[in-house]
């Protein structure tokens, strides 16, 4: 292609520059943008925090107030969508939002605070109410009472049951 051929080609092609800040752009199918937690659906199981490679989702437990805090910090998120894959309640999903620039770091946080249930044995808050209800739907009826106990009390109860049962069969 000669020099003139190139010029004619570029004229035929027309303008390629986007008008971006003044006009919106089209995003491709399956674009991974800002992750968002739906606070109505979130059960606070912590699966997303476990799989998150950069620990952008962190979970803090406040035993005095009885709250479990799910803190999503966008400034560290790498948009891998593992949290979306693993969420059992389909509460977290990646939107197509990409205009995330913020003038302060505080604006990059999304915080969900969920109420925790107290153990029927020792009275220590151990899990969110929503998570217990979520598990209770899937459990058979005879196993449900165990849910009211924290893992420590559950272990104690299980060993107690085993000792009693072993004594009976002796």
């Amino acid at each position: 292609m000669g020099r003139f051929g190139l010029i004619f080609k570029s004229i035929a092609k027309g303008r390629v520059t986007e008008k971006y800040p003044f006009a919106p752009i089209e995003l491709p199918e399956g674009f991974r943008g800002k992750p968002e937690i739906d606070p109505e659906k979130c059960i606070g199981c912590g699966a997303c925090a476990t799989v998150c490679p950069p620990s952008a989702i962190q979970i803090h437990v406040d035993e005095e107030q009885g709250y479990k805090t799910i803190d999503l910090f966008l400034g560290r998120c790498i948009f891998c969508a593992r949290c979306e894959e693993v969420c059992p309640a389909e509460a977290i999903r990646l939107t197509k939002e990409f205009e995330l620039a913020a003038a302060s770091e505080e604006d990059l946080h999304q915080v969900v605070k969920l109420k925790m249930a107290k153990c029927a044995g020792c009275g220590r808050p151990f899990d969110t109410v929503r998570h217990l209800q979520f598990i209770a739907e899937k459990l058979p009826e005879e196993q449900k009472p165990m849910l009211a106990l924290c893992p420590d009390c559950r272990a104690k109860l299980a060993s107690k049951i085993l000792t009693v049962a072993a004594r009976r069969h002796r």
Partner: peptide, 18 residues
Amino acid sequence: QKQKSEIFVEESDIDDAA
């Protein structure tokens, strides 16, 4: 600026597993 921090606090009467 579109991005704003969001804080959601669950309000529920149940706080006892029993």
